[in-house]
Every structure is written in C-alpha cells, then in structure tokens.
Design a binder for these strands. Sequence first.
DNA 1: CTAAAACCTGACGCTGACGTGAGGGACAAG
DNA 2: CTTGTCCCTCACGTCAGCGTCAGGTTTTAG
Lengths: 127, 127
Amino acid sequence: MRIGELAEKTGVSVRALRYYEEQGLLTADRSGGGQRHYGDSAVERVHLIQALYAAGLSSRTILDLLPCVDAKVNTPESRALLRAERARIDEQIRQLRDARDRLDAVIASSESPTSGCAHVESDALVP
Amino acid sequence: MRIGELAEKTGVSVRALRYYEEQGLLTADRSGGGQRHYGDSAVERVHLIQALYAAGLSSRTILDLLPCVDAKVNTPESRALLRAERARIDEQIRQLRDARDRLDAVIASSESPTSGCAHVESDALVP
DNA sequence: CTAAAACCTGACGCTGACGTGAGGGACAAG
DNA sequence: CTTGTCCCTCACGTCAGCGTCAGGTTTTAG
C-alpha cells in the first residue's frame, strides 16, 4: 500500500509517517518513481511506534528499542534497555496515579456538602 | 519566603515559578521593591501544579482546574471539568499500560530461548 | 556604607513532533 | 493527451515549558 492508505489505516498523518522514516523508525520500499510502498506489517509497526510515543518515549529511544523488538538484537544490553524503559513507564504510571488521586480528592470535596455553597443535584453522571 | 527558597523547597526552578505566575497558576505578594513573597501554602500549591503537569495537563487546563481546587468555584460545570480531566488521565494510564504490555511481550520473547541466540543467565531481576 | 547575594523584567534560544505550504513528478482513468 | 489525485522533497512555522543571558534594583551581611 502507499503512504496515504497507511495513514488512513493507522490514523496517523502522512507527515508523521514520513517523519518516522526520517527518524529511522519505519522503512519502505520505493517504486520506480520514488513512491513509498508498505507491506501489511507496517500497520502494526506504526501502532507500536504510536504506543511508545504515547508512553512518552522519544524517537531516539524508540529507535534504540526497535532492533530488540525485531528480534535482530538480543544482548544483555538490549534487555537492560528494555527493562529500563519499562521501569520508566511504570514510574510515569505512578505519577499519573498521583495526579489522579489529587484530582479525586478535589472532586470528593467539591461534591460533598462541606464547601459552603452546597446544593445537591441529581445530574449525577458518575461513570 | 522569597522565590529562591520556594524553588529550593519544591525542587522547581526559579524560572519555572515565574512562569507559573505568568500563566496565572501561582500568585505572590510583592514587597516594596517588587520582590515576590510566598506563604507556606505555596509549597503545596507548587507540588499540585507539578503533579498536574506530570500528568500531561497543559497550563491552560490547570488554570481552568485551579479555581475548583481552591473551592472558590463549585458549579456543575466545574465538577464536569474535573471529571473530564480525571477521565483523560485514566485514558493516559491505559495507554501507558498498553505500551508497557507491548514492551513486556518483547522482553518475554527476548528472554525466552526462542530467539535463536538463546543463553539463559540468572541475572533475573524481574520486579 | 559597601559588597555580595538574591531578585527583577524583558527577551531570545531550545527541543521534539509534527503542520503547512511551495514547486514539481507519478500514475490510473477516460 | 490530459485531467485529477496522490505522491515527492525541501524547508520554514509552531507550541509549550522552561533555560539563559543582559542590564539593572533590592535586600542582607558585616
């Protein structure tokens, strides 16, 4: 498939896909005219990249991780790298939970009738 | 206390504190000469701001949330805002878990002897 | 009173992950 | 052949959250 289709299938912009290639995260065959062509596996690849970006990893770090993912490299160093990034993600999750708990405290106090301006409505949409 | 002391107590740079004020997140009394003076509560305030930043909220969003936190505002809208941001954080946590699980899969396959280059060491530090 | 340390206000710099044209080919349809 | 749609490569623009330097003022220590 060409770049437009991949963009559509993954929900990522064409520009972003070219950027990934620029960063070495994604490769493509080229047609005679120079147009990029991707196999079906590229979809999954892009999803992985997106997941790692969403986890706050930099493209540089992702670049370091991908060879491990591709199972081309399997050294003690690469495994250490994987575990280190996993730990970073865990730390981020902890921070997020902290922020969430703080917000929960605020929510609780704003919904309990201790805030002076108490008026209880039953527009409760609590998911 | 003055800005330097607050910076030290919170672990945030002086520049960052001034930036928070610029964004309306933090207020300070001024001495005759124009220097900022903070009360003790500012420490907690900065920690809250930091936690929300760490959760990926923008200063604009934090600005919208803080009046709720200060319990000056307690309207259905403000509560909805709080819940919405809480939901966003939950979503981020989900994404992080997804990324972590993907890494875990890679780690598992790289540490199991299916990758050809298998050699089992007992440096297992699996937390 | 004086020197050092801390503080002030601009204002420009930086980084990463793209957005957004500009200007010009590629390629299937009719 | 031409029209339309997709694609290409530069290359500059953006935005947030500060870092950093410049030039000047305030506060504190001695």
